[in-house]
Write a protein that binds this DNA or RNA. Structure first.
Lengths: 208, 208
DNA sequence: CTCATGACTGAACGCTGTTAGCTCAAATGA
DNA sequence: TCATTTGAGCTAACAGCGTTCAGTCATGAG
C-alpha cells in the first residue's frame, strides 16, 4: 500500500534553487514569444512550457507585464551590443554615425515582435506604460545616439544645435521607418534597404 | 392572463430600418472607443450601449476587427479633410508642403487612440493585418503627400528624385514622430512643437 | 525532531470574442 | 387575408484569457 503511493509520480515540480526558476520562466517566455509572438505568450502557455502551474509564475513576477518588460529589457541589452559592434571598423565620423543608425533599424527589423513589444503600447494598460519605460539600457541607447550627433557637430558635418532635440528627432524618424517596414512592408513600393539609405541621407543632409 | 403577458416589457429591441442599426453600432463603438480606448471597446460593451445583445453585432459585422476597421476608415476620411483644409491660405509651395506635414502629425496627436488603432498592429491577429489595410482613403492620403513632394521638385525646392521613395521616407519620419510623441511624451526632453518644426526642417533641407 | 517558511497546486472568478440554436416580428406571395 | 419565408434579435454556452484564493507539502532552521 505504502509503496504503491510512492510509485505515484510527483505532481509537484521540485523547487528551483536560487534564481534558477525565474531564469527558466524568462527563457521559456522568450522562446515562446519569439516563435509565436505576443499573442502566443500567455501565462498558461509559459507555465506549461516550464512544467509548472500558471500560479507559480506569480511567485517570481507580479504580473504578465513584468515578464514582457523583462524580455524588452533583454532586447535593449542586445541592442546596446549591436550598436557598439556597428562602430567597429569605422574610420570616419560620418561612417560611424550612419552605421549606428543603420544598425538600429536593422536590429529592429530582425526581431519585429521584440521591437513591437518594446515600443508599441498594447491595448490593455490604459495608463500608457510601455515595457521600455524604466529600463536603464533605453537611456544608454539614446545616449549613444546623442553622442553620435555631438561627434558629427564637432567634426563639422552637422551645424551646431541642440543635440538632445536633434537626437530625438532622428530617433523619431528611425523609429517610424522601422515600424513602417515591420507593419506595412507589403504596402511599400520601395525596398527596405533603399528606404534606410534614403532616410540616412535625409538625416545627414538635413542637419548638415 | 393574456393581458398580464402583454404587459411584460419586450426584451427584444425592434429591428432598425435600412442601415440604421449598423450606423447605430458604429456610432456607439466610436463613442466608447474615443472615451475609453481600445480596451474599453468590447463587443459586450458596444452591444449594451446600443441596447442589443452581443450576438446582434455579428449580423452587421463579421467580427470585432471589422468594427475597428470601420472606425479607422472614418479616421482616414477625416484626415483627408484636414489635409485638404491645411492647404488653404498657403501662398508658397513650401508653405503648403510644410502645412500638410504639420497637419498630419497634429491630427494624429489630437486623437492618439485613433492613430494607434489605425496604424499600430495589435497583439492578436498574428497574420499582421492592420485596420489601415484595404482602405482607399489611406492611398489617397499618401497620394496627397506624394503630389506635395512632386510640387516641391517642380518648384525647385527639392532635388529631382523618386517621388514615391521620398514620400515613403517622409511618411515614415512623420509617423515615427507622431507615435513617439503619443507614447513616449514623458520621456522626451523637447517640446512636441519644437520636434515637429525640427522634423520639418530636416525633411525640407534633407531633400532640398 | 519539530516548526515555520514559501514554492507550488487546483479551483475558481470575471473577463474576453465568438458560435449554436432558438424565437418571433415583419415582409412576401397566393 | 392568411400562410410562409426570412432574418434580426435573443439566451446560453464554449474556450480561452489574467489573476486570486486557500490549501499542501518539501525543505531549511532551530
Amino acid at each position: 500500500m505504502s509503496e504503491f503511493i510512492q510509485t505515484i509520480p510527483r505532481q509537484r515540480k521540485p523547487r528551483g534553487h536560487g534564481s534558477e526558476r525565474k531564469a527558466e520562466i524568462l527563457a521559456a517566455a522568450t522562446r515562446i514569444f519569439l516563435q509565436e509572438g505576443v499573442a502566443g505568450a500567455t501565462m498558461r502557455r509559459i507555465a506549461s512550457e516550464v512544467g509548472v502551474s500558471p500560479t507559480a509564475l506569480y511567485v517570481y513576477f507580479p504580473d504578465k507585464e513584468a515578464i514582457l518588460e523583462a524580455i524588452a529589457q533583454a532586447w535593449f541589452f542586445e541592442l546596446l551590443g549591436v550598436l557598439q559592434a556597428s562602430q567597429a571598423n569605422q574610420t570616419s565620423v560620418e561612417g560611424a554615425f550612419r552605421a549606428g543608425l543603420r544598425a538600429y533599424v536593422e536590429f529592429g527589423l530582425a526581431r519585429p515582435d521584440s521591437y513591437r513589444l518594446t515600443f508599441l503600447s498594447r491595448p490593455d494598460n490604459r495608463d500608457g506604460k510601455l515595457p521600455c519605460d524604466d529600463i536603464p539600457e533605453a537611456d544608454y541607447s539614446f545616449a549613444v545616439l546623442q553622442s553620435g550627433v555631438e561627434a558629427m557637430m564637432q567634426a563639422g558635418q552637422f551645424r551646431p544645435g541642440d543635440s538632445t532635440a536633434i537626437a530625438e528627432t532622428i530617433w523619431a524618424a528611425l523609429h517610424g521607418l522601422t515600424v513602417i517596414v515591420i507593419d506595412q512592408a507589403e504596402h511599400l513600393k520601395t525596398a527596405p534597404n533603399r528606404l534606410i539609405e534614403q532616410m540616412l541621407d535625409m538625416v545627414v543632409r538635413g542637419f548638415g
